[in-house]
C-alpha cells in the first residue's frame, strides 16, 4: 500500500481545526511522512487538485453556494471524507438558529437588506452530511491534537474510525471528577460526545457540549432534571442550542413549553 493521498480543506468556519493540525508541531513531519498531502492551503500554496484522494479532511459548515460547490468537488474525488470540527459535523454555532425562522429574515437583520452584496450567494449554514455522504467524523470545537493524531493513525492503516458512542461523563469519571450536574451546575456532559477527555469539567467548568450531541441522548430527562434544579426553560434551551443544533433545541423548547402548561394546569 502506498501512502494515502490526502487533502485538507476548509469551508465556512474559524479555520481553527486546520490550525490545530498545524499546531501538531512535533508530529507534523510524521503526518507528512505517513500521508501524501496533495492540498492543504493553510499550510502551503503548492497544491494539486487534479488527483484522486484517499482521504479528505473537511472543516467548516456549508454556508455559501461556493462552499457547496467545493464540497461536491471534494466528495467526488475522495474515497473517504472525514468531517472535522463541530461546524463540519454538526453545523457549528452559525447553525444554531437553523430552521427557527425563514433564514432570509436573519439575513436581512444582519446585512440590512435582502440582496446585500456578498462574494458568493449565501445559504443556511448546515453540516456536511446535509449534502454529502460523510464516512467518518471527528467532532470538537476545535478538534484536539491527540484525537486527530489517533484518527490519522487509523486512516493511514486503512481503518475508518468511528466516534466513541459514550458521553463525556465516562471520561469525566476516568478523571475522578466530582459531578458538576450533581452540584447543581448546568453541565451537558451526559448529552455530549466524549473524546475531549472531559477537559472543562476537569477544570470545574460545566460541559457546554462542543463535541456535539451523542446519538440517542436523553435530553428530555436532563431538561427536566435541570428544571428541578431551578433553571429556567429559556436558560436550558439556550445552552442546548449553542452546539446542539436547532432541531434539538426546537424539540426541547416545545417539550419544556408543554411541560410548563401541564404544571400550571395542575
Amino acid at each position: 500500500m502506498g501512502k494515502p493521498k490526502v487533502g485538507i480543506y476548509g469551508l465556512t468556519g474559524c479555520a481553527g481545526d486546520q490550525l490545530n493540525i498545524i499546531n501538531c508541531e512535533d508530529e507534523l513531519l510524521k503526518i507528512f511522512d505517513i500521508f501524501e498531502i496533495e492540498s492543504f492551503v493553510m499550510a502551503s500554496r503548492a497544491k494539486n487538485e487534479n488527483v484522486e484522494l484517499d482521504v479528505a479532511f473537511v472543516e467548516g459548515s456549508v454556508s455559501t453556494e461556493k462552499d457547496l460547490e467545493h464540497l461536491m468537488e471534494i466528495r467526488k474525488k475522495s474515497k473517504i471524507l472525514v468531517a472535522i470540527g463541530h461546524c463540519a459535523v454538526f453545523g457549528g454555532v452559525q447553525s444554531m438558529f437553523m430552521g427557527k425562522e425563514p433564514w432570509i429574515e436573519r439575513y436581512k437583520k444582519v446585512y440590512g437588506k435582502e440582496n446585500a452584496v456578498t462574494l458568493t450567494p449565501p445559504l443556511e449554514p448546515k453540516p456536511l452530511a446535509a449534502y454529502v455522504k460523510v464516512d467518518a467524523v471527528l467532532p470538537g470545537c476545535p478538534i484536539e491534537k491527540e484525537p486527530f493524531l489517533k484518527l490519522a493513525g487509523k486512516l493511514a492503516h486503512g481503518i475508518v474510525p468511528k466516534v466513541p458512542d459514550f458521553p463525556v461523563c465516562a471520561e469525566c469519571k476516568w478523571k475522578e471528577n466530582e459531578c458538576l450536574l450533581l452540584k447543581g451546575q448546568l453541565c451537558l456532559g451526559p448529552l455530549t460526545n466524549s473524546g475531549c477527555g472531559a477537559i472543562c469539567p476537569s477544570m470545574n467548568i460545566p460541559c457546554i457540549g462542543c463535541w456535539g450531541p451523542i446519538a440517542k441522548e436523553n435530553w428530555e430527562s436532563e431538561a427536566l432534571l435541570l428544571l428541578e434544579k431551578g433553571y429556567k426553560p429559556d436558560e436550558i434551551v439556550k445552552r442546548f442550542a449553542i452546539f446542539g443544533g436547532t432541531e434539538r433545541a426546537e424539540l426541547l423548547k416545545n417539550f419544556l413549553e408543554s411541560h410548563q402548561k401541564q404544571e400550571s394546569g395542575k
Partner: peptide, 13 residues
C-alpha cells in the same frame, strides 16, 4: 429507562 442519562457513571463508580 425514561430518566436514565446513559452516562455510565454507575458502572464507573
Amino acid at each position: 429507562g425514561d430518566a436514565c442519562l446513559s452516562c455510565g457513571t454507575c458502572t464507573m463508580v
